[in-house]
Write a protein that binds this DNA or RNA. Structure first.
Lengths: 160, 160
DNA sequence: CTAGATGCAAATTGTTTGCTGGCGA
DNA sequence: TCGCCAGCAAACAATTTGCATCTAG
């Protein structure tokens, strides 16, 4: 049994829960995912594998896994229409949304870590998670507006 | 007529809109506010002044003012239950929510500006606005859990 | 067996919209 | 007058919950 499945199984056990067929499936899908997904997509994939999964169970299971610190919930765009989840094992990515073409650009930056360290040092805060959503104009749209590319997330860019 | 009212009036005129009693009231309230508010509170205050204001008008008016870049919408806590607005003239504040006592701590940090500059320099992005929501444990709650202080926002802290 | 989990549908919450009468320019 | 606006209530979308049923342990 691989790491994620093992951790998830233990978390459910510890909470006095049971390993049902639905939970087994959802956990296996997460295990093999690229580590980032939105609820609706996750639900459709799960249902394609087993029609015996409801959206309620998806939410309930994600809530359990989040409480166990195995996944974390976040938003991507400043208007927050949809909630996304990512495995905690994944290095968190942050997102910029273009107001004109709605393209989403994912990035890492050491400044986010620096901000967390500053909050710890100066205010004594322990930071568990951050939702960093920025918006504005992408390079393509700064001169002429461009066609809508809603939800096409580019590969995550690593800043200096 | 003071600056904000003047700008708002002009923005509405330019869009071919009319200055109704409701809009006049809402703009005057913003003019005299401390520059940051949530929709529900704003609605209650407006209604106390004139029972002839509906929640729909509050939303419609805020949307107009946001399009005119006189206010901006953002979220405070990572779960984003409620949306807040602030006057653009105000220096933006970011927020940390304690998972245990739900206290909200507002702060400024030069690192947020630095992040925007980095995105501009390295990816060519023009940043209009940011939603920076962090959560974790406040100093009080790191040892023993504490009573719920939901929504009591402390004065904004300025970090080095 | 029995507590916990499930699916379904109804409830919730925050926000937007359709409609009809009203009123600003 | 004419068309934008208002209030109201219904629509919406994402998420949660109540309930009767089912099942893992």
């Amino acid at each position: 049994m691989s790491w994620f499945t093992e951790q998830a199984t233990e978390a459910i056990r510890n909470a006095g829960g049971r390993m049902t067929a639905q939970r087994k499936l959802l956990i296996a899908l997460l295990e093999n995912s690229d580590g980032e997904f939105d609820v609706e997509t996750f639900f459709h994939i799960a249902r394609a594998n087993d029609s015996n999964v409801s959206i309620a169970t998806v939410y309930r299971t994600l809530n359990i896994l989040e409480a166990a610190r195995l996944v974390k919930q976040h938003y991507r765009s400043r208007d927050h229409e949809r909630s996304y989840y990512e495995l905690v094992s994944k290095e968190p990515a942050y997102h910029f949304t273009c107001r004109a073409c709605h393209k989403i650009i994912a990035f890492h930056s050491p400044l986010v870590q620096a901000l967390e360290r500053q909050l710890a040092a100066e205010l004594g805060l322990v930071v568990f998670g951050a939702c960093i959503c920025l918006d504005g104009l992408c390079p393509d749209c700064q001169n002429q507006p461009e066609q809508d590319k809603t939800d096409h997330v580019s590969p995550t860019l690593l800043l200096a």
